[in-house]
Simulated scan of single mutants.
Amino acid sequence: MPVYLTPDQVAAMLPGLTRGKLAQLRFNGTGPNYRKPTPKTVLYVESEVIAWVESSARWGVGARAA
């Protein structure tokens, strides 16, 4: 069963992410997937938020292939 999180809970679990920034990401379509079961309710699935963060992994630009 999925674990649903509010925007406040998502912002609290991710350092540097505010509720306002999360709203901007929703508006731009660049944030984690979300659900809107009612017009004023936004929910996130915890595993999808984690997958979104993991998809942003970067390996650095300093190491170049020989």
Rank of each mutant, 00 (worst) to 15 (best):
Q9L: 05
A65G: 07
Q9C: 01
G20Q: 14
Q24L: 15
N33Y: 04
S56M: 13
V53R: 10
T41L: 07
P37Y: 12
K21F: 03
R26Q: 10
P32Q: 01
M13F: 06
M13V: 03
S55M: 01
V42W: 00
P39Y: 04
E46K: 13
Y4V: 03
E48Y: 10
V3A: 07
Q24A: 15
L43N: 06
E48N: 11
W59G: 11
K21N: 09
P37S: 06
T38I: 05
A51C: 02
V61A: 01
P7T: 06
R35M: 12
L14T: 13
G29P: 08
K21G: 06
F27R: 15
G31L: 07
L25N: 08
N28M: 14
D8N: 15
L22K: 04
K36P: 00
V42C: 06
G20C: 09
W59L: 13
N33F: 06
G31Y: 08
A66F: 01
R35D: 08
G62T: 06
W52Q: 00
V42Y: 04
P32D: 01
V49Q: 02
N33K: 12
Q24I: 14
V53C: 06
G31N: 04
T18C: 10
Q24H: 09
Y44P: 02
V10Y: 13
I50W: 07
A65E: 11
L14C: 10
E48G: 03
L22P: 05
T38M: 01
Y4E: 09
V42S: 01
T6W: 07
A66S: 09
K40W: 05
R19H: 14
V53F: 13
P2Q: 05
S47Y: 01
M13S: 14
W52I: 02
D8K: 15
A23P: 02
G60K: 14
I50T: 12
P37N: 09
A63P: 00
L5I: 03
Y4M: 09
F27I: 14
T6S: 11
G60S: 08
A12Q: 10
